[in-house]
Protein backbone atom coordinates (compact mmCIF):
# COMPACT_ATOMS: atom_id res chain seq x y z
CA UNK A 1 0.00 0.00 0.00
CA UNK A 2 1.08 3.53 -0.76
CA UNK A 3 2.76 4.96 2.39
CA UNK A 4 1.01 8.29 1.89
CA UNK A 5 -2.39 6.62 1.67
CA UNK A 6 -1.59 4.63 4.82
CA UNK A 7 -0.59 7.78 6.64
CA UNK A 8 -3.76 9.53 5.51
CA UNK A 9 -5.84 6.61 6.75
CA UNK A 10 -4.05 6.65 10.09
CA UNK A 11 -4.57 10.38 10.49
CA UNK A 12 -8.25 9.94 9.68
CA UNK A 13 -8.54 7.30 12.41
CA UNK A 14 -6.79 9.49 14.96
CA UNK A 15 -8.94 12.52 14.08
CA UNK A 16 -12.10 10.43 14.26
CA UNK A 17 -11.42 8.93 17.68
CA UNK A 18 -10.25 12.24 19.13
CA UNK A 19 -13.18 14.30 17.93
CA UNK A 20 -16.16 11.94 18.14
CA UNK A 21 -17.94 10.09 20.90
CA UNK A 22 -17.75 6.32 20.99
CA UNK A 23 -20.94 4.30 21.42
CA UNK A 24 -20.78 3.60 25.14
CA UNK A 25 -23.16 2.34 27.88
CA UNK A 26 -24.95 -0.02 25.51
CA UNK A 27 -26.23 -2.64 27.96
CA UNK A 28 -30.06 -2.43 27.90
CA UNK A 29 -31.48 -0.71 30.97
CA UNK A 30 -34.59 1.05 32.16
CA UNK A 31 -34.99 4.17 34.24
CA UNK A 32 -36.79 3.20 37.44
CA UNK A 33 -36.43 6.18 39.77
CA UNK A 34 -35.31 9.81 39.67
CA UNK A 35 -34.69 12.55 42.20
CA UNK A 36 -33.38 15.95 41.15
CA UNK A 37 -30.50 15.08 38.76
CA UNK A 38 -30.02 11.55 40.11
CA UNK A 39 -31.29 8.62 38.10
CA UNK A 40 -31.56 4.98 39.06
CA UNK A 41 -31.31 2.48 36.24
CA UNK A 42 -32.09 -1.22 36.31
CA UNK A 43 -30.33 -3.40 33.75
CA UNK A 44 -32.55 -5.77 31.83
CA UNK A 45 -31.83 -9.30 33.10
CA UNK A 46 -30.72 -11.91 30.59
CA UNK A 47 -30.75 -14.88 32.97
CA UNK A 48 -34.11 -16.50 33.87
CA UNK A 49 -35.45 -15.57 37.33
CA UNK A 50 -34.84 -18.91 39.09
CA UNK A 51 -31.18 -18.89 38.07
CA UNK A 52 -30.55 -15.33 39.20
CA UNK A 53 -28.87 -14.30 42.45
CA UNK A 54 -31.40 -13.27 45.03
CA UNK A 55 -29.68 -10.12 46.34
CA UNK A 56 -29.59 -7.22 43.85
CA UNK A 57 -26.48 -5.09 43.37
CA UNK A 58 -26.39 -1.30 43.32
CA UNK A 59 -23.45 0.41 41.62
CA UNK A 60 -22.47 3.84 42.95
CA UNK A 61 -19.79 5.79 41.13
CA UNK A 62 -17.95 9.02 41.95
CA UNK A 63 -19.63 12.42 41.85
CA UNK A 64 -17.32 14.07 39.33
CA UNK A 65 -17.28 11.52 36.50
CA UNK A 66 -19.91 9.73 34.49
CA UNK A 67 -20.75 6.25 35.79
CA UNK A 68 -20.79 4.58 32.38
CA UNK A 69 -17.17 3.56 32.88
CA UNK A 70 -18.86 0.56 34.51
CA UNK A 71 -20.61 -0.19 31.22
CA UNK A 72 -17.96 1.03 28.82
CA UNK A 73 -18.62 -0.86 25.61
CA UNK A 74 -20.22 -4.15 24.56
CA UNK A 75 -17.80 -7.00 25.17
CA UNK A 76 -15.87 -4.96 27.71
CA UNK A 77 -18.41 -3.95 30.30
CA UNK A 78 -18.50 -4.82 34.00
CA UNK A 79 -22.28 -4.41 34.03
CA UNK A 80 -22.71 -6.74 31.06
CA UNK A 81 -20.40 -9.24 32.77
CA UNK A 82 -22.52 -9.25 35.93
CA UNK A 83 -25.88 -9.31 34.17
CA UNK A 84 -24.78 -12.34 32.14
CA UNK A 85 -23.88 -14.08 35.41
CA UNK A 86 -27.33 -13.66 36.85
CA UNK A 87 -27.05 -10.50 38.95
CA UNK A 88 -29.90 -8.03 39.23
CA UNK A 89 -27.87 -4.87 38.62
CA UNK A 90 -28.87 -1.28 39.34
CA UNK A 91 -26.84 1.86 38.65
CA UNK A 92 -27.17 5.15 40.48
CA UNK A 93 -26.20 8.03 38.20
CA UNK A 94 -25.76 11.21 40.25
CA UNK A 95 -26.10 13.40 37.18
CA UNK A 96 -24.45 16.75 36.65
CA UNK A 97 -25.12 19.32 39.38
CA UNK A 98 -26.28 22.73 38.25
CA UNK A 99 -25.76 26.07 40.04
CA UNK A 100 -28.93 25.32 42.02
CA UNK A 101 -27.25 22.22 43.51
CA UNK A 102 -24.20 23.97 44.94
CA UNK A 103 -25.42 23.30 48.51
CA UNK A 104 -25.60 19.53 48.03
CA UNK A 105 -23.46 17.75 50.59
CA UNK A 106 -22.47 14.21 51.51
CA UNK A 107 -25.38 14.49 53.95
CA UNK A 108 -27.87 14.74 51.09
CA UNK A 109 -26.28 12.02 49.00
CA UNK A 110 -25.99 9.52 51.85
CA UNK A 111 -29.17 10.21 53.82
CA UNK A 112 -31.59 11.33 51.12
CA UNK A 113 -30.63 9.93 47.76
CA UNK A 114 -29.11 6.58 48.70
CA UNK A 115 -31.77 5.39 51.19
CA UNK A 116 -34.53 6.34 48.75
CA UNK A 117 -32.85 4.59 45.82
CA UNK A 118 -32.24 1.49 47.95
CA UNK A 119 -35.85 1.47 49.11
CA UNK A 120 -36.94 1.53 45.47
CA UNK A 121 -34.60 -1.35 44.64
CA UNK A 122 -36.04 -3.43 47.48
CA UNK A 123 -39.56 -2.85 46.19
CA UNK A 124 -38.71 -3.55 42.56
CA UNK A 125 -36.68 -6.66 43.28
CA UNK A 126 -39.00 -7.72 46.13
CA UNK A 127 -36.16 -8.27 48.58
CA UNK A 128 -35.13 -7.03 52.00
CA UNK A 129 -31.37 -6.99 51.40
CA UNK A 130 -29.09 -5.42 48.81
CA UNK A 131 -25.42 -5.32 47.89
CA UNK A 132 -23.72 -2.03 47.09
CA UNK A 133 -20.54 -1.38 45.14
CA UNK A 134 -18.94 2.04 45.57
CA UNK A 135 -16.05 3.31 43.53
CA UNK A 136 -13.75 6.24 44.44
CA UNK A 137 -15.90 9.04 45.94
CA UNK A 138 -18.80 6.61 45.51
CA UNK A 139 -16.97 4.38 48.00
CA UNK A 140 -16.83 7.24 50.51
CA UNK A 141 -20.58 7.77 50.14
CA UNK A 142 -21.42 4.07 50.46
CA UNK A 143 -19.14 3.69 53.49
CA UNK A 144 -20.81 6.63 55.24
CA UNK A 145 -24.24 5.26 54.36
CA UNK A 146 -23.33 1.75 55.53
CA UNK A 147 -22.06 3.09 58.87
CA UNK A 148 -25.04 5.39 59.44
CA UNK A 149 -27.75 2.94 58.37
CA UNK A 150 -26.48 -0.53 59.33
CA UNK A 151 -30.04 -1.86 59.69
CA UNK A 152 -31.20 -0.74 56.26
CA UNK A 153 -30.65 -4.16 54.71
CA UNK A 154 -27.15 -3.69 53.31
CA UNK A 155 -25.75 -7.20 53.11
CA UNK A 156 -22.59 -6.85 51.03
CA UNK A 157 -20.41 -3.82 50.50
CA UNK A 158 -17.71 -3.65 47.84
CA UNK A 159 -15.35 -0.71 47.86
CA UNK A 160 -13.17 -0.01 44.83
CA UNK A 161 -10.12 2.23 45.27
CA UNK A 162 -11.77 3.83 48.28
CA UNK A 163 -10.13 7.04 49.56
CA UNK A 164 -11.06 6.73 53.25
CA UNK A 165 -7.86 7.28 55.22
CA UNK A 166 -6.20 10.66 54.78
CA UNK A 167 -3.66 10.42 57.56
CA UNK A 168 -0.59 9.65 55.44
CA UNK A 169 0.03 13.14 54.07
CA UNK A 170 3.41 12.18 52.59
CA UNK A 171 1.80 9.73 50.17
CA UNK A 172 -1.07 12.02 49.16
CA UNK A 173 -0.15 14.59 46.54
CA UNK A 174 -3.69 15.99 46.59
CA UNK A 175 -3.34 16.62 50.33
CA UNK A 176 -0.38 18.87 49.68
CA UNK A 177 -2.17 20.74 46.88
CA UNK A 178 -5.31 21.41 48.90
CA UNK A 179 -3.50 22.43 52.07
CA UNK A 180 -5.05 25.58 53.50
CA UNK A 181 -1.77 27.42 52.92
CA UNK A 182 -2.21 27.10 49.15
CA UNK A 183 -5.86 26.39 48.42
CA UNK A 184 -8.71 28.58 49.62
CA UNK A 185 -11.66 26.28 49.06
CA UNK A 186 -14.23 28.87 50.18
CA UNK A 187 -12.93 31.47 47.76
CA UNK A 188 -13.01 28.97 44.89
CA UNK A 189 -16.57 27.92 45.70
CA UNK A 190 -17.68 31.52 46.22
CA UNK A 191 -16.57 32.23 42.67
CA UNK A 192 -17.78 29.06 40.94
CA UNK A 193 -20.53 27.64 43.17
CA UNK A 194 -19.68 24.08 42.21
CA UNK A 195 -16.15 22.81 41.70
CA UNK A 196 -15.64 23.13 37.91
CA UNK A 197 -15.11 19.90 35.98
CA UNK A 198 -12.08 21.36 34.22
CA UNK A 199 -10.28 22.02 37.51
CA UNK A 200 -10.97 18.51 38.78
CA UNK A 201 -9.83 17.06 35.48
CA UNK A 202 -6.63 19.11 35.57
CA UNK A 203 -5.94 17.97 39.13
CA UNK A 204 -6.32 14.30 38.24
CA UNK A 205 -4.24 14.56 35.07
CA UNK A 206 -1.49 16.68 36.62
CA UNK A 207 -0.58 13.83 38.95
CA UNK A 208 0.93 12.04 35.94
CA UNK A 209 1.40 14.78 33.36
CA UNK A 210 3.52 12.92 30.82
CA UNK A 211 1.28 9.84 30.70
CA UNK A 212 -1.94 11.85 30.50
CA UNK A 213 -0.93 14.65 28.16
CA UNK A 214 1.56 12.85 25.88
CA UNK A 215 1.84 9.10 26.50
CA UNK A 216 -1.84 8.47 26.05
CA UNK A 217 -1.81 9.91 22.52
CA UNK A 218 1.43 8.16 21.61
CA UNK A 219 -0.18 4.88 22.65
CA UNK A 220 -2.98 5.56 20.18
CA UNK A 221 -0.54 6.43 17.40
CA UNK A 222 1.56 3.33 18.03
CA UNK A 223 -1.51 1.09 17.81
CA UNK A 224 -3.47 2.95 15.18
CA UNK A 225 -3.55 -0.17 12.96
CA UNK A 226 -4.96 -2.34 15.72
CA UNK A 227 -8.77 -1.92 15.64
CA UNK A 228 -9.23 -3.46 19.07
CA UNK A 229 -6.89 -0.99 20.76
CA UNK A 230 -8.38 1.91 18.80
CA UNK A 231 -11.95 0.99 19.79
CA UNK A 232 -11.00 0.71 23.44
CA UNK A 233 -9.01 3.96 23.32
CA UNK A 234 -11.97 5.72 21.70
CA UNK A 235 -14.36 4.52 24.42
CA UNK A 236 -11.95 5.47 27.22
CA UNK A 237 -11.28 8.88 25.66
CA UNK A 238 -15.01 9.51 25.42
CA UNK A 239 -15.32 8.82 29.15
CA UNK A 240 -12.19 10.75 30.17
CA UNK A 241 -13.35 13.90 28.36
CA UNK A 242 -16.87 13.72 29.76
CA UNK A 243 -16.32 15.31 33.16
CA UNK A 244 -18.90 16.92 35.38
CA UNK A 245 -18.61 19.50 38.16
CA UNK A 246 -18.82 18.47 41.80
CA UNK A 247 -21.46 20.02 44.04
CA UNK A 248 -19.84 22.79 46.11
CA UNK A 249 -21.03 21.51 49.49
CA UNK A 250 -19.74 17.99 48.88
CA UNK A 251 -16.43 19.29 47.51
CA UNK A 252 -15.92 21.43 50.61
CA UNK A 253 -16.52 18.38 52.83
CA UNK A 254 -14.07 16.34 50.77
CA UNK A 255 -11.35 18.96 51.23
CA UNK A 256 -11.98 20.17 54.77
CA UNK A 257 -13.38 17.11 56.54
CA UNK A 258 -11.43 14.43 54.73
CA UNK A 259 -8.25 15.67 53.05
CA UNK A 260 -7.35 18.19 55.74
CA UNK A 261 -8.75 16.66 58.91
CA UNK A 262 -9.20 12.94 58.18
CA UNK A 263 -12.48 13.02 60.13
CA UNK A 264 -13.94 9.76 58.79
CA UNK A 265 -11.18 7.52 60.08
CA UNK A 266 -10.86 9.48 63.32
CA UNK A 267 -14.57 8.93 63.93
CA UNK A 268 -15.23 12.67 63.96
CA UNK A 269 -17.22 13.03 60.76
CA UNK A 270 -20.73 14.30 61.47
CA UNK A 271 -23.48 13.87 58.90
CA UNK A 272 -26.77 15.61 59.73
CA UNK A 273 -25.95 15.55 63.41
CA UNK A 274 -24.99 11.87 63.41
CA UNK A 275 -21.38 10.88 64.03
CA UNK A 276 -20.14 8.35 61.48
CA UNK A 277 -18.85 5.39 63.47
CA UNK A 278 -17.20 2.87 61.16
CA UNK A 279 -17.55 0.25 63.88
CA UNK A 280 -21.28 0.22 63.13
CA UNK A 281 -20.62 -0.93 59.55
CA UNK A 282 -21.52 -4.63 59.70
CA UNK A 283 -22.06 -5.58 56.06
CA UNK A 284 -19.79 -8.19 54.49
CA UNK A 285 -16.93 -6.12 53.11
CA UNK A 286 -14.62 -6.49 50.12
CA UNK A 287 -12.19 -3.68 49.45
CA UNK A 288 -10.41 -3.75 46.11
CA UNK A 289 -7.07 -1.96 46.13
CA UNK A 290 -5.06 -0.98 43.06
CA UNK A 291 -1.34 -1.38 43.64
CA UNK A 292 -0.40 1.31 41.13
CA UNK A 293 -3.11 3.81 42.04
CA UNK A 294 -1.73 7.36 42.02
CA UNK A 295 -5.09 8.98 42.82
CA UNK A 296 -6.03 6.74 45.76
CA UNK A 297 -2.84 5.06 47.00
CA UNK A 298 -3.33 1.72 48.82
CA UNK A 299 -2.62 3.43 52.17
CA UNK A 300 -5.99 5.16 51.84
CA UNK A 301 -8.07 2.01 51.36
CA UNK A 302 -6.43 -0.63 53.54
CA UNK A 303 -6.86 0.76 57.09
CA UNK A 304 -10.68 0.67 56.88
CA UNK A 305 -10.63 -3.09 57.49
CA UNK A 306 -9.36 -2.59 61.02
CA UNK A 307 -12.06 -0.03 61.80
CA UNK A 308 -15.26 -1.66 60.54
CA UNK A 309 -17.46 -3.96 62.58
CA UNK A 310 -17.89 -6.49 59.76
CA UNK A 311 -16.99 -10.08 60.59
CA UNK A 312 -16.63 -11.09 56.95
CA UNK A 313 -14.05 -8.72 55.43
CA UNK A 314 -11.39 -9.03 52.77
CA UNK A 315 -8.85 -6.85 51.00
CA UNK A 316 -8.09 -7.78 47.41
CA UNK A 317 -5.03 -6.21 45.82
CA UNK A 318 -4.81 -5.97 42.05
CA UNK A 319 -2.06 -4.76 39.77
CA UNK A 320 -3.17 -1.63 37.96
CA UNK A 321 -4.24 1.96 38.34
CA UNK A 322 -7.26 3.81 39.66
CA UNK A 323 -9.40 3.19 36.58
CA UNK A 324 -7.36 0.44 34.92
CA UNK A 325 -8.31 -2.22 37.48
CA UNK A 326 -11.94 -2.02 36.32
CA UNK A 327 -11.69 -0.76 32.76
CA UNK A 328 -8.26 -1.98 31.62
CA UNK A 329 -7.55 -5.08 29.62
CA UNK A 330 -6.72 -7.11 32.74
CA UNK A 331 -10.02 -6.32 34.47
CA UNK A 332 -11.88 -9.19 32.81
CA UNK A 333 -9.25 -11.69 33.94
CA UNK A 334 -8.67 -10.55 37.52
CA UNK A 335 -10.88 -7.92 39.13
CA UNK A 336 -14.30 -8.77 37.66
CA UNK A 337 -14.14 -12.55 38.30
CA UNK A 338 -12.95 -11.99 41.87
CA UNK A 339 -15.78 -9.56 42.63
CA UNK A 340 -18.28 -11.87 40.94
CA UNK A 341 -17.17 -14.91 42.94
CA UNK A 342 -17.09 -13.01 46.22
CA UNK A 343 -20.54 -11.57 45.61
CA UNK A 344 -22.15 -14.73 44.23
CA UNK A 345 -21.40 -16.73 47.36
CA UNK A 346 -22.93 -13.95 49.48
CA UNK A 347 -26.01 -13.25 47.37
CA UNK A 348 -27.97 -16.46 47.93
Amino acid sequence: MDPLATLEEQLDTVTRVMTTKAPIAQTPKELVWTLNKAKLYRYVPVVPQPERHRVPLLLVFALMNRPYILDLRPGHSFVEFLVKRGFDVYLLDWGSPGPEDKHLKFDDYTLEYMPRAIRKIKVLSDVEEVSVLGWCIGAILTTIYAALRPDDGLRNLILLTAPLDFSNKEQLTFSRWVDEKYFDVDKVLALFGNMPAEMIDYGAKALKPVENYVGNYLKLWDNVDNPNVVTNWHAMNTWVRDNIPMAGGAFRQLIVDLYRNDRLMKGELVIRGERVDLGRLRANLLTVIADGDHITPPCQSEPVLAKVGSRDKEAYRVRGGHIGIMAGSGAEKHTWPHIEQWLASRSK
Binding site: T173, W177, K181, F183, A206, K208, V210
Partner: peptide, 22 residues
Protein backbone atom coordinates in the same frame (compact mmCIF):
# COMPACT_ATOMS: atom_id res chain seq x y z
CA UNK B 1 10.50 12.84 31.98
CA UNK B 2 7.56 11.10 33.56
CA UNK B 3 9.51 10.13 36.68
CA UNK B 4 10.97 13.62 36.98
CA UNK B 5 7.62 15.38 36.61
CA UNK B 6 5.80 13.01 38.97
CA UNK B 7 8.35 13.86 41.65
CA UNK B 8 8.09 17.51 40.75
CA UNK B 9 4.28 17.71 41.15
CA UNK B 10 4.59 15.94 44.49
CA UNK B 11 6.90 18.64 45.83
CA UNK B 12 6.02 21.45 48.20
CA UNK B 13 7.29 24.00 45.68
CA UNK B 14 4.79 22.83 43.04
CA UNK B 15 1.93 23.03 45.55
CA UNK B 16 3.05 26.54 46.42
CA UNK B 17 3.37 27.60 42.78
CA UNK B 18 -0.03 26.23 41.78
CA UNK B 19 -1.55 27.79 44.91
CA UNK B 20 -0.10 31.18 43.96
CA UNK B 21 -1.40 30.86 40.41
CA UNK B 22 -4.88 30.03 41.69
Amino acid sequence: WSKYLVEEVKSESYAQASGTAL
